[in-house]
Design a protein around this nucleic acid. Structure first.
Lengths: 264, 264
DNA sequence: CCATCTTTGTGCACGCGTTCACAAAGACAT
DNA sequence: ATGTCTTTGTGAACGCGTGCACAAAGATGG
């Protein structure tokens, strides 16, 4: 999974813990699948298995929403789908703008999972004049000069940032100034926003690095012994000295997080 | 941020807590930026600000790696970059395969943040024969029939799944059987894997739903009063009855998570 | 060499999230 | 109606993660 939320005060939003909110979409997905197979009811055990969580956790999660189950039977699938949808705010329409129509932005624009969940791509925005008017996934790209106008006219409150890292903060500022209060950030940057604005971040590079960490650990368990010793040796020989160093050695500058096209 | 890990026993991997591991890439990014500006040392306060975290948390995180700071001065940027890179396993080469070259898979293939972090796209794999041989981001797509051969020959241990949800589990099984032990899953499905295999999930739809929840809450705080009352009323009038229901009413089947092209 | 000042490293307390285990609630059969 | 059986809902214990606050460590200046 990508990384979590940012600047979230962790104030459980109305009795419902953040951790529970994050799992509700998971349950909803499993329930929707059951609903399509016309399964009338489901037990916490079955649903938990389908969602990949512990059944006790699932029951506790649902208990925050209310007592929607029937003891000895389970949960009514249709009813629960409705309740969770309502709790998540999916019974209403959420216009969304995507800023930065590179490879990733285009992929997001074409994503089918939007409409079904109450999300509607209100506009695609890019700074490149060559893109303006060009249809992507059936929606014409608009120029970023019109960003404020688009947001205000459509009443957009959710923005997706898929720009290069360098301009992400500026885009963010403009979005917020225009009235957006929730942002999904795909650029590899820490966005700073005023209170009251939610930011969630998706970062592919970070996910891969976390996997690499565990992968390394797995590999290291077999060819052990040297691991501990080599850790010390390596630190004392190969790498830049802990303190010394020719002041500004500047490594061979990799991408430096100012790369192009697609962040994540 | 996208959603978190799956099937992770939460056993702190060698004294280093999971939460800390998840933040190391963040620190690394900030440090790399400093390194490129030839900044020699940085204090926990400054670095914490750049990474968007609390300075005490940062110091505690670093304390799990060892005592790499100098009191009264701060941390040596180059040295810390090296230490974190080594800890994350980024000093070695990680060949990665991407399975499912749709919009998203193509965007991932073109992502610049791979090489710089020790990740190398070893192969792009797709089940569509029409894609075979076609270059995407400069790399020719290979047919999924050769999946096992590719993984074994290149010694790939990390796989990225960007297929439709319907085939994700099959692809996952084949990857694991061929020797992959870490998977980054973009398909909206709960993957089941044997012990010893790590799965991380990125799910755009879930992130948006979480944002929608908070957005709804924010909107509800202004036009209050009715909120509580309407919640009850709505539950009793509009929605499917809590128990009753014509057995298998089957909602108007949305995308049902078996949609096409791009999951996440 | 001593005093002062900065910044790290960490002991401690607190709160959230997870899990266990069980009592209460209801369905269902007799 | 009564008993049995299934499954929910939750009280309580535990563990992890976070943040405070401070002592120890080292740099720096006189």
């Amino acid at each position: 999974m990508a990384t979590g939320r940012t600047h979230r005060p962790a104030t459980r939003s109305r009795g419902i813990p953040e951790a529970t909110v994050a799992r509700l979409p998971l349950y909803l997905r499993a329930l929707t699948a059951l609903s399509e197979r016309s399964v009338p009811t489901v037990s916490s055990e079955e649903l938990a298995a389908a969602a990949g969580v512990n059944s006790a956790k699932l029951r506790k999660d649902f208990s925050y929403l209310g007592s929607y189950g029937t003891r000895g039977v389970g949960y009514d699938v249709e009813y629960l789908v409705y309740q969770i949808s309502r709790e998540l705010g999916l019974t209403q329409d959420w216009p969304v703008v995507i800023v930065g129509i590179g490879n990733l932005g285009a992929a997001l624009a074409g994503y089918g999972g939007f409409a079904s969940r109450g999300f509607r791509v209100a506009a695609l925005i890019d700074a490149d004049p060559a893109m303006t008017g060009k249809p992507v996934a059936g929606i014409p790209v608009q120029h970023s000069d019109d960003l404020e106008k688009i947001i205000e006219e459509d009443g957009v409150s959710i923005g997706v940032i898929a720009t290069p890292a360098g301009v992400a903060q500026q885009v963010c500022d403009r979005l917020v100034a225009a009235g957006v209060t929730s942002i999904l950030n795909f650029a590899p940057t820490v966005l700073s926003v005023p209170d009251g604005v939610d930011v969630r971040k998706v970062d592919l590079s970070i996910e891969l690095q976390i996997l690499a960490f565990h992968e390394q650990r797995k590999a290291g368990e077999e060819s052990n012994a040297e691991a501990a010793a080599e850790a010390e040796t390596a630190a004392a020989v190969a790498p830049p000295a802990p303190r010394g160093g020719t002041t500004g050695g500047s490594r061979k500058g990799p991408d430096g997080d100012v790369p192009a096209v697609m962040p994540a």
